[in-house]
């Protein structure tokens, strides 16, 4: 089975946030049973964290954050709002476990790379290389991360858990 697969190297613009960013500020709970269209969901991304984000985010941007990114609710819109807004990867010191699973399951790259969090600044660029397991800042400084496991890459390459299982069912 061939898939388009996740691009192994890309560069994006950095948005930078702090520790313990929770799912309520990423995607408020009051919208969870009412907003359904991709446009509506994307329009409220990070609404209570950074009111500038949804209006200014560009396709291919990268979010960089501190520890425990995505703590709180299990709501999957806390991932899908970022995907729909065009975010290509989130690099953090650590992730809450449900958010991390949701990211993988929605084909969003989530990288634990504390060294890059220290290097990164908002508005700078970051280049992520999955083959070299390196993130490079705009000034050329690099930070290494633990290479993704084959299990994780297979799901990301399929575009998420649902397409991955559909492939398995078809094979």
């Amino acid at each position: 089975m061939t898939t388009s697969g996740m691009v192994r190297q890309f560069t994006g613009r950095v948005w930078k946030y702090g520790d313990n960013v929770n799912t309520d500020v990423i995607f408020p709970g009051k919208y969870t049973y009412t907003l359904k269209t991709p446009e509506d969901i994307a329009a409220h991304a990070l609404e209570d964290l950074d009111p500038e984000f949804a209006a200014n985010v560009q396709t291919g941007d990268i979010v960089v954050a501190g520890s425990n990114w995505g703590c709180g609710s299990s709501r999957e819109q806390a991932v899908s709002c970022l995907v729909l807004a065009g975010v290509r990867a989130v690099v953090a010191r650590s992730f809450s476990r449900i958010w991390y699973r949701n990211a993988l399951n929605n084909g969003l790259l989530a990288l634990e790379c504390p060294a890059f969090v220290d290097l990164a600044s908002a508005g700078d660029t970051a280049t992520i290389s999955l083959t070299e397991a390196l993130v490079t800042a705009g000034d050329g400084r690099t930070a290494a991360f633990k290479p993704l496991s084959d299990d994780v890459l297979r799901i990301l390459d399929a575009g998420g858990l649902i397409p991955y299982i559909k492939q398995q069912m078809a094979d």
């Binding site: 299990s74 991932v79 449900i98 699973r101 998420g160 649902i162």
Partner: peptide, 14 residues
């Protein structure tokens, strides 16, 4: 343990 919506859908299926 808490999981996401896609995972529940996968559990219903598999």
């Amino acid at each position: 343990a808490g999981i996401g919506r896609s995972e529940v859908a996968a559990l219903w299926a598999q």
